[in-house]
Design a protein around this nucleic acid. Structure first.
Lengths: 359, 359
DNA sequence: TTGTATGCGTTATCAT
DNA sequence: ATGATAACGCATACAA
């Protein structure tokens, strides 16, 4: 294992102004209310049975007067829990991520936890640094859709009994709870519909699969479904790396010319891919659905608006977030049952971009 | 001021499993490396001058062996700084917010700070709770686009010397640093272009202005510009509250029928509004730009894709985030200069949705 | 170059 | 029903 040089990274140590105004502490409240710190602490943790009505009210008032806010760092240090949850997403600008985030957030706050959100840009190095940072904060749980290149550090977290829950991307080798869209079901459902509509050629466009299980499952299901149906498009899986300039245009051109004149469909692995594809199609002056049909994963807000309405597979993103966080909570409460993988169904939303042939 | 009942909200106090594996502390490292805790602490804060080459290496190795991670809560408690920044956004699912967030994040991590992200759904109550929560975490700074209904609590933060920086929405009465799009410039630029294109009727569609300065500035500039130009559309400002069902359809209909046959344009206050408008227009079977032209604030990823390409005003979101966080950093370093309002220019991006009349 | 002792704000233990 | 005291992990003032 690499030696991690652990040096405090706050460069600005030099001279942060220490002009600390009087922020009141539990001691201040105690003095002001004429009781001991212990009693205040009891009040703070809701042990009202052990406090007389009178003093309870006095404490309440004093806290308001002093604008006292319990210090979570002190509390966390003492109790060995931070009351914070870490969330690491691959791309925070992707609505898919933020929707999951919303689910996580709602459950978090309902239970008094705070959320530290980190964005890796799919960069394993950034991911590693964030994991370490969250570890330093002593997060009580982590929710992550991982690049798949930091198993060592994730494992380390788990060894410290910090619950880790994976979302969107499975990593079976780690034995973590996992919450994902049921990609097999969703893809199958969509494919069945496509064949029903009479498409003679269907192409699946995906980003490099790498360690991203969702892409992998979608590609595989696409392939296997067509194989089973003995459909001519079996090999029409196109892998596009956006970092390679012009690759999308090139592969798109390859498919388009090879399927000239056929009743054809472009199926995109996610919303990002779909948008890029539509961009190119528009530049080429191709009309949807007259010249080519399209569909994709992710039912984003533009899907109904782009004429004639884009057929999509809505992923249960919010629910994924809720489930993931609830899972974390269970583990925090001490649940030691074996790790589970929860697969939530996707929903096919049919719009104008995928007409049937007879029509 | 209302009495805030301050009771620990972690419901799950009951029996969190205390099966704490051995997480090593500074003491463990010290013992293992055969030096004092002080020396380890020196290492951690980068005071290498005061450590011999030999012991430095030994410490390095020991830290790696023990997988030691300094406890930020302990450090924060001692130093009275949490190394965390709070960020409160009105709607995390809005790409506008996440783009700002990206800017904040980059500056944060570059300087060793962590980010706690909170989402209010434009709900003042949620906002209040988040402010208090962040306060409890003793955040070193706060970046917020506020609902405008929690001045009291924001002020409280400021009194404790916690820097607060406003983004997107100004609140002059608070005297905080503020970073926003230059809405006057951006709107003016767009309007000038629209008139140049020869539009006879222009409608501005906005959500209720309330305390949201950006909406206010855009509406006002729209109005004043037309007044100055003595343009017939002076009164065409439509306020739509999405919570009122059918209101958008109704107001849209009003404008459409009143402008029948004229060379006309719909100008939306932001991307969310634009998408909803496009939805209705499509249902009505209106073509863009033949039947009506459209344009909006926010250059989101769908803008170039929706035929014939939507004309937009790109806001410098990422830069807003960067500037805001740099502002926070300055204040943390003790800068006491008067609060500034930074206005970053918006950029008009012309696409097919706003053709000129002669064309 | 290194170490000792004290305290940050809170909770837990053990008292009364 | 209430309090005194120790301890959480770390940084700092002061010694050596």
């Amino acid at each position: 294992m690499a030696i991690v040089k652990l040096v405090n990274s706050v460069k600005s140590l030099s001279k942060p102004s220490k002009q600390q105004s009087h922020r009141s502490t539990i001691g201040d409240v105690a003095r002001e209310a004429g009781v001991s710190k212990t009693t205040i602490s009891r009040y703070l943790s809701g042990q009202f049975d052990s406090i007389s009505e009178q003093t309870r009210k006095r404490i309440e008032q004093t806290i308001a007067d002093l604008k006292y806010r319990p210090n979570r760092m002190a509390r966390g240090l003492k109790r060995d829990r931070s009351f914070s949850i870490g969330m690491i997403v691959a791309d925070i600008t992707n609505p898919f991520s933020t929707s999951i985030l919303r689910g996580v957030e709602d459950v978090c706050t309902k239970h008094g936890y705070s959320l530290m959100v980190c964005n890796t840009d799919n960069d394993p190095v950034k991911e590693k640094e964030y994991i370490m940072m969250l570890q330093a904060h002593r997060i009580d749980g982590l929710i992550i859709n991982s690049t798949g290149h930091n198993n060592e550090y994730l494992h380390e977290l788990a060894e410290e009994q910090t619950p880790v829950v994976l979302v969107d991307r499975k990593m079976p080798e780690l034995g973590f709870d996992t919450v994902v869209t049921n990609n097999v079901q969703a893809t199958t459902e969509a494919m069945r519909f496509f064949l029903q509509q009479g498409y003679e050629r269907i192409a699946f466009f995906t980003q490099p699969v790498e360690k991203v299980s969702s892409r992998n499952e979608r590609s595989n299901t696409f392939h296997q479904f067509l194989a089973q149906a003995n459909h001519p498009s079996i090999t029409d899986v196109y892998v596009v790396d956006f970092r390679e300039n012009g690759q999308l245009e090139q592969k798109l051109e390859a498919y388009l010319s090879s399927s000239q004149g056929q009743f054809r469909l472009l199926f995109a692995v996610n919303g990002v891919m779909q948008l890029k594809i539509l961009n190119v199609l528009q530049q080429k002056g191709l009309r949807i659905p007259e010249d080519i049909a399209v569909a994709c994963f992710d039912d984003l807000d533009w899907a109904p608006v782009i004429p004639p309405g884009i057929t999509t597979i809505a992923q249960p993103t919010y629910e994924i977030g809720v489930n993931a966080m609830e899972r974390v909570l269970k583990r925090i409460m001490g649940d030691q049952s074996p790790a589970e993988t929860i697969e939530l169904p996707g929903k096919l939303i049919i719009r104008g971009s995928t007409p049937s042939k007879t029509k």
